[in-house]
Design a protein around this nucleic acid. Structure first.
Lengths: 212, 212
DNA sequence: TCCAAAAAGAACCTTGAAGTCCATAATTGG
DNA sequence: CCAATTATGGACTTCAAGGTTCTTTTTGGA
């Protein structure tokens, strides 16, 4: 009882305990991404992480708690990846570099598995209101990276003053998610590239001087 | 054994039997859309359709077979709905009417549940290769409606000759799917409208005479 | 009206996944 | 180095979901 509360945040875990916990979370995150949350059993996680049932139980009261940590980890990794490209964004050129990296990433697995956050959202949004809200916040943060970049581009004169960074960022997010889904279904990164090109062209229409 | 083969296509079923089969399929389709495929139990379907276990078994050898019919029904209904707006499409004006109807449809349920086909795709694409291919074909058919409409628009002079209907249709499909996912996660149809507006604007950039 | 075939209903079985518990091994502090 | 605490392994229990089978009811044609 006191144990569970303590273990939730790994405050008083030894090095070894924390390593086990991380192995569990890593295995669960990877499997839930590839197979889906419902299709991933705790026994799968146990095997893949090289641990045992009682360890799952020690570190997570139930599958839901594990799932919530999976969402958090996946979100932090996705955000971190995009930050890498977007925190200093202020031109169309930067947006194109980001697009190329993203398309490359999707091409590496031939489109499969979809967006690490998007597929969680699709599976869980209408099932657990708490997780839905959490995911909505993560999406907002992600969109915020784009919006901030576009604002910098506008303020620095790369985009016209009448450009609407918020709407452009939302459109770009939809292009990303739609591209992911079409790529996943077709097992082909092609649609992702076309989709992102569309969204960038749409932004380019607000470029200060015509042409790229 | 002969029974199963016979029942698969409702060739030699009586009126009553066909009605039961339809009730089962309708209930399964609705529930799997709202709750997801994995979260829908056969017992749920049995209750919702007012039938019993042996009837499920009689009409469908297993859950997978039911699932496949659900995909087919959902696809035919989605396609039919979009055909209604897209078969005679040949101008931006028509595209805008379609967009308004789609946004209205999403707004009715406050964004929830996502795309009837897209959420099936996200859940099943990496789980069952056969279903993935089927869904890819349905998406292609859907995209084909858009592409054909854009080709008519181009041939009738509404779009410039250098417009690429295939790429524009793919971009539009991504906008639809991305819009659905963001609307589902945010429980707000707003992103769907912004996303479709972006895709239409992108097409408008290829309009023969400037402006709409 | 009666009979054969089809459909419905409900009890039953099997499997697999989540969750529980306890004995043993490892680790850490005094 | 010993005792106390923490981590581990694996067996066990429970439960729910899928799937099966049998009996009863309904239907439709001779």
């Amino acid at each position: 009882m006191a144990d569970q509360a303590r273990d939730k945040n790994d405050a008083r875990l030894t090095e070894r305990g924390r390593a086990t916990r991380n192995r569990i979370l890593r295995a669960a995150t990877d499997m839930m991404y590839v197979r889906g949350v419902a299709a991933t059993t705790l026994d799968d996680v146990r095997t893949a992480s090289g641990t045992s049932k009682s360890q799952l139980y020690r570190h997570y009261p139930d599958k839901d708690a594990l799932m919530r940590d999976v969402v958090a980890l996946q979100a932090s990794e996705v955000l971190e990846w995009h930050q890498q490209y977007l925190t200093r964004l202020k031109s169309l050129r930067g947006l194109e570099r980001w697009r190329d990296a993203l398309v490359e990433r999707v091409a590496l697995r031939e489109g499969a598995y979809g967006c690490p956050l998007g597929s969680l959202a699709s599976e869980l949004a209408d099932q657990d209101e708490g997780i839905r809200k959490t995911l909505a916040q993560h999406f907002e943060e992600w969109e915020g990276l784009l919006r901030a970049g576009l604002e910098r581009a506008r303020d620095s004169g790369a985009l016209r003053p009448d450009a609407d960074p918020a709407a452009l960022a939302t459109g770009m997010m939809a292009a990303v998610q739609g591209g992911y889904l079409l790529a996943q279904t077709a097992r082909d990164p092609g649609p992702m590239k076309i989709s992102l090109d569309m969204a960038i062209d749409h932004i380019r229409a607000y470029a200060a001087d015509e042409g790229s």
